[in-house]
Structures are given as C-alpha cells and as structure tokens.
Design a protein around this nucleic acid. Structure first.
Length: 155
DNA sequence: GCCAACGTTGGC
DNA sequence: GCCAACGTTGGC
C-alpha cells in the first residue's frame, strides 16, 4: 500500500524544478535519525511525496514526487570532502540512508504554508505545527487528498 | 538576521 | 543517565 510523505528542501539548494530537470535525484544529506528511519524502514517504491520548499518566502508545497528507489547508504557520509561526511560511519555499518525520487506533478500554483494553516481540515497536519523541524514527515492520506484539492490536482 | 524549538554531544 | 552547552532548522 502506498504511503504519503512530506519532504523539505530549500529551493535555492535543490528545488522541485531542479528535480524535474534532473528526472530523478538521490535525496542525500539527511542527518536526522527520525527522518532516516522513515526513509530506511518505511518508504517503498511508489510512495507519494509532497515536495515542500522551506526557508523561502512564502514557504510552500511546490508539487508531488514519488519514491523510485528504496533505501540504500548515502555515500556522502564516507566522503571526507563532503559537508555531510560522518567520521563515525563505515561502509560495513553505514549510518545514513537515502532514497531516490522522481517528479510526478508540479502544482500550477504553489500551496503556501499560510493556506495550509487556514484550512481547518489540515489542523492536525505535522508541517503546520510549531517547532516542527523534521525534514521527512508522514502525511495522512486525508491530508494529502486535501492538499491536492487545494492545488486542483487529481491524480 | 533573529531566535524559538529542538536534537546532539560529552563531561560528570 | 543527567543535563548544560552547543549546533541546526526554518518561520518570521
């Protein structure tokens, strides 16, 4: 069965348009255990992702992507030159994992964080909660459907 | 650029 | 295993 997720990216680092241009991407650089666990243990091929742009004005969901490769070690953890290098990780016991995703649909009009907050049906959605910093979050299907409705997208 | 809200680290 | 210090995230 399909799971639904929200994943954050800073658009000046890697935007939804970059993903469209590339066709698919390795979601490297996640260094939070909870986010890693979701990617490593829960994400399956075909899972659907709300692609969220953080640290931009206004913060918003830009489109939908999907998981096209299940978890495997993030090689940047072994690369001393990478800012994601982790000296405690070894190839025998990798610490960080990632997935690959590919674009599905770009929203014609972005769905902003303010719009999400204004929608009573999304009251319980994690991303609108204060202090919620997790960059990989599970999303209820009902919330996912509501966001699609707001974006006039019908998959 | 500020700073609240976290998550991680390391001394004890 | 506690918790202070530190680092990061991300909205504002």
């Amino acid at each position: 069965m399909t799971n639904y997720w929200l994943m954050k990216s800073e658009p000046h680092v890697y935007s939804f348009d970059d993903l469209v241009k590339d066709g698919s991407t390795h979601w490297d650089g996640v260094r939070n255990y909870q986010a890693r666990n979701f990617m490593r243990d829960k994400m399956r091929i075909g899972d659907i992702v709300l692609y969220y742009h953080s640290n931009t004005k206004p913060p918003h969901i830009a489109g939908i992507s999907k998981i096209c490769k299940e978890s495997y070690p993030d090689i940047t953890q072994f690369d001393q030159k990478s800012k994601y290098y982790d000296p405690k990780a070894t190839k025998e016991a990798p610490r960080w994992f990632l997935i690959d995703m590919e674009p599905v649909t770009k929203f014609d009009a972005m769905v902003t964080l303010d719009q999400l907050k204004e929608n009573p049906a999304l009251e319980e959605m994690l991303v609108i909660k204060r202090g919620q910093r997790l960059s990989v979050q599970p999303v209820d299907k009902t919330h996912f459907d509501e966001v699609c409705k707001m974006a006039n997208i019908y998959l």
